[in-house]
């Protein structure tokens, strides 16, 4: 048992985590008859909590509570993994990336998230506000505008060979590569 927990605690290789992530799609279809997607939960939160006249939020969100239940489960799973099954330094990073990030004043590279950016303290910095709040806003706006995220389009939609999902995933990567290589060097110096 001890050795099993130790093995679980080690970092997992991509050829293990990839199939485990992908398995979510058939598991949800077979056990629950639902197509996977996470980002519609954001819409359900708006529909349930925020008063609005916008037609986009007037639908039977109660039928989609399952999506919020999955989101709750993801939080619990994240808690269990991070608290009981993580090595002391969970993130290993390529020395080239590390050198680049250090030159932009990101020094905490081995924790799950760098404290330079994802901490309450970072909210005192311009770059922290842009990333924590601005990045989150763009993710929420874009995922609903594009009708899906990395789960719904990237895994579920592409498995169904959807053209809409292929276009969206190409756009995800185009935006991500541009932001990481062109925008971030400016943002991180703020």
């Amino acid at each position: 048992m001890e050795s099993l927990i130790n093995a679980l605690r080690e970092p997992w290789p991509w050829y293990l985590t990839g199939p485990l992530v992908g398995l979510m799609i058939p598991l949800l279809l077979i056990t629950c008859n639902r197509q996977f997607g996470i980002s519609s939960s954001l819409r359900h939160v708006c529909a349930a909590l925020l008063p609005t006249k916008a037609a986009y939020f007037h639908y039977e969100w109660k039928k989609d509570v399952w999506n919020l239940v999955i989101a709750l489960g993801v939080m619990i799973g994240g808690f269990i993994a991070a608290h009981y099954f993580m090595p002391a330094e969970p993130v290993q990073v390529n020395p080239a990336t590390a050198a680049h990030l250090r030159s932009l004043n990101i020094r905490d590279l081995t924790h799950l998230q760098p404290a330079d950016l994802y901490s309450w303290h970072a909210l005192m910095t311009v770059r922290g506000i842009i990333i924590i709040l601005g990045g989150g806003f763009l993710v929420g706006f874009g995922t609903r505008y594009g009708n899906g995220c990395t789960s719904g389009h990237g895994l579920m939609g592409l498995s169904l060979e959807s053209k809409a999902s292929l276009a969206a995933v190409i756009a995800f990567y185009a935006g991500g590569i541009f932001a990481a290589n062109v925008l971030l060097p400016f943002i991180l110096r703020m």
């Binding site: 924590i132 989150g136 505008y145 594009g146 009708n147 190409i170 935006g175 932001a179 925008l183 971030l184």
Partner: peptide, 15 residues
């Protein structure tokens, strides 16, 4: 899908 995907991607790359 493209417009929203690009905006999502910008947020994904930043955050």
């Amino acid at each position: 899908n493209i417009y929203g995907g690009l905006i999502f991607g910008l947020g994904w790359g930043m955050a």
